[in-house]
Design a protein around this nucleic acid. Structure first.
Ligand SMILES: [Mn+2]
Length: 674
DNA sequence: CCGAAAACACATAG
DNA sequence: TCTATGTGTTTTCG
């Protein structure tokens, strides 16, 4: 249902127009294959934007519901834009308990009782999403000429991180999403979904903050599509506290990371909610709530009901944000041939894998499928293990050592959300063939079947190159793939929804840090004519001689290594620079911390970056909330540590109350001592 | 397989 | 979150 976008033109990586061969391309991220009906549920980015797609939500009710929905009292609304009044290019009607306001217009709702079909569908949507909805906007797109332009449903009346459930009936239409970074929505992530008759699409988390969506014109579509968008309009705010003089913002108050407090005199600074969006820690929001750090309109944006949330019962406030998570820091100790873990904040290492490893040099975790990947370059293999969290919260493997890739000397690994494994390294070529430094992909469904790796890019001058036999002749039996001068000897790799990033462990003529294009040219069969198209890799930064760690976080790309001159440390590019970088002069590179010998990094998905430092024999941490200088904190002694990764699993829904009280008490004592 | 027309993508102004 | 316009690209179809 989700298509590989055949003709969404992408901005070229550089200013040179790049002709795209749209056929036979391989995308790093595909919700599912075009034409199939697979459901999807996952993150769109590292800022907590969530999308869920159920193609067959309505199943056998679809026809009946559609028939009943056709008789709703749709009208063509009018909209004022740039001072001119236009008829909206679609018909709408709105049902709900409360008035609906957008773009300065207030629309009186029709009562739910007038449309039993909507109550039926709402019930179904609520039971599947586990959310409640009190309003629904019904859209009737009469044919392919009816559209809706780029927008986000980020009206304050929906509160922060609203969940919006969209049910489709009738004609299939493309639904586009594009990512916005720092106000600009150009050339970041893009997704197209062909919404099926009877399907359900749920946007939640930060999707309305970080993405826009639209329904583009489709000349070929004759039939109508009826679309229901269920939303929850939050309570109005009354009784906002105005007497507290200090604004307190608590950042990164995870136990393991530094508790940073910023004080602002009332009125001298405003709370930037967008900059707080990364924060999933209920205690932080509770602190904001308690200390009145939110103005009336901020509170409205946050969706906090101050009447029931604060005044009546102190902290009996249900956080709109996800609950706490357990964080397992997993580390390899190659000299001891073992892999251990620490359940943070407890710094105690507990054994995880102690057998059959000769050199566990790189780690990666697939949280979705609870898999741990272990690169063992001495064994020329990548192993994987199924992970399990016992009720006692101990982390174990299921014991079996599986093989994800063979004949592979892996330097770095990353797992995409789809469970695909990306490996940097070189293959151990079996006699007639020679190996290259390259980046490979093993699809999630591939390593169980022991299928061969797909070679995405190799080191080279940019041309398409075949695998070579030892005598230098091309091996026509092997597929050929594009090369790029941005790979010399790749070390760490990282992947987000759309892009693969790598650092060069040995820089050679390449840049230190680079990324692939958003669509990856698919390898061609050996012996085929080499296409003109280039790999499309793009240099991002060039300040390091050797990159040893690389992690993508919500605030940007963090990478570790040894500079050309100066001391080793942690560096970062802010997310708005992560597309184009600044490899020419490194002006956008920020130094985060100095670390004696950083060998690997990982991120907890929240606000903390972890660093394996073989210099001090410890795992360190820095706040990752901003790509700027931060103090380093020691998390755990770790003599001989080499690779680290992190597994986060949701823990029991913790009551905000206890945590909030603890934090608030701490903050209060701090405040009184100031 | 070619060439023209339609559809699509994207930036910009109002 | 609308229309109109210009430019360029991709797909379709005879
Ligand atoms: Mn919308």
């Amino acid at each position: 249902m989700v298509s590989r976008r055949k003709h969404v033109k992408r901005k070229p990586a550089c200013s040179i127009a790049r002709k795209q061969a749209f056929q036979g391309q391989l995308k790093l991220f595909e919700i599912n294959e075009s034409g199939s009906t697979q459901p999807f549920w996952g993150y769109l980015d590292r800022r907590g934007s969530v999308l869920r797609y159920l193609p067959d939500f309505a199943s056998r009710n679809a026809e009946d519901w559609l028939r009943r929905l056709r008789s709703l009292p749709y009208t063509q609304g009018r909209v004022k834009v740039f001072g001119r009044d236009y008829a909206e290019p679609r018909l709408t009607c709105y049902f709900g308990d409360k008035a609906y306001t957008y773009s300065g217009r207030t629309i009186e709702p029709l009562p739910w009782s007038r449309a039993p079909v909507l109550q039926d569908i709402r019930k179904e949507v609520e039971s599947i999403t586990g959310e409640s909805f009190n309003s629904v906007l019904c859209n009737r797109y009469r044919n392919g000429d009816d559209t809706v332009g780029w927008h986000a449903d980020n009206e304050p009346i929906y509160g922060p991180q609203p969940t919006i459930a969209s049910v489709t009936f009738g004609a299939e239409r493309d639904f586009d999403l594009k990512e916005c970074r720092k106000g600009s929505c150009r050339s970041a992530g893009r997704i197209r979904i062909r919404l099926a008759h009877g399907s359900l699409l749920v946007m939640s988390g930060a999707t309305q903050e970080c993405w826009q969506h639209s329904l583009p014109r489709r000349k070929g579509v004759q039939d109508e599509r009826i679309n229901l968008t269920f939303r929850k309009v939050i309570e109005s705010t009354k009784g906002v506290i105005t007497s507290i003089k200090h604004y307190v913002i608590a950042c990164a108050c995870r136990p393991a990371s530094a508790l940073a407090l910023f004080f602002f005199r009332a009125g001298s600074a405003s709370l930037d909610l967008a900059s707080m969006a990364w924060c999933r820690n209920a205690a932080v929001w509770t602190a904001l709530l308690v200390f009145g750090a939110l103005s009336g309109s901020d509170a409205l944006k946050l969706g906090i009901n101050w009447e029931t949330g604060f005044e009546s019962s102190g902290l009996q406030w249900k956080s709109p944000l996800p609950g706490e998570t357990e964080r397992y820091l997993i580390a390899s100790f190659p000299k001891d041939f073992k892999i251990s873990y620490a359940r943070l904040p407890d710094p105690t290492w507990r054994p995880l894998i102690v057998h059959n490893l000769s050199n566990p040099a790189a780690l990666a975790v697939d949280e979705q499928n609870m898999r741990l990947f272990v690169a063992d370059p001495t064994a020329s293999k990548v192993f994987w293990y199924k992970l399990k969290v016992l009720p006692s919260k101990f982390l174990v493997t299921e014991g079996l050592q599986h093989v994800a890739a063979e004949n592979m000397i892996a330097k770095g690994m990353a797992v995409s959300q789809a469970g695909d494994l990306f490996i940097s390294g070189r293959v151990v070529a079996s006699p007639p063939l020679t190996g290259h430094s390259a980046i490979y992909k093993q699809a999630a469904d591939g390593f169980e079947a022991a299928s061969p790796l797909t070679r995405l890019w190799t080191a080279g001058d940019g041309s398409w190159i075949p695998v070579l036999n030892a005598d230098g002749a091309p091996a026509t039996s092997e597929p050929m793939s594009p090369s790029t001068p941005e790979i010399y000897q790749p070390g760490p790799v990282a992947v987000d929804m759309f892009t693969l990033y790598w650092g060069n462990a040995i820089k050679g003529n390449a840049s230190a840090l680079a990324r692939g294009p958003q669509t990856v040219p698919a390898p061609l069969p050996g012996g085929a004519a080499a296409p003109k198209s280039k790999a499309g890799a793009h240099a991002l930064a060039n300040n390091l001689q050797a990159v040893t760690g690389l992690t993508i976080t919500s605030s940007g790309i963090f990478y570790a290594g040894r500079p050309v001159q100066g001391r080793p440390g942690i560096f970062a590019l802010r997310s708005e620079d992560s597309l184009n970088g600044c490899a020419a002069d490194d002006h956008c590179v920020h130094r985060v911390a100095q670390v004696s010998n950083p060998v690997d990094m990982c991120w907890d998905g929240d606000a903390t970056l972890f660093i394996a430092d073989s210099g001090s024999g410890a795992v360190l941490s820095v706040p990752s909330s901003t790509a700027s200088r931060h103090a380093v904190v020691k998390v755990a002694e770790a003599l001989g540590v080499h690779a680290i990764t992190m597994l986060t699993v949701p823990s029991m829904a913790t009551k905000v109350t206890g945590l909030g009280v603890a934090l608030v008490t701490a903050v209060a004592s701090l405040l009184s001592s100031v």
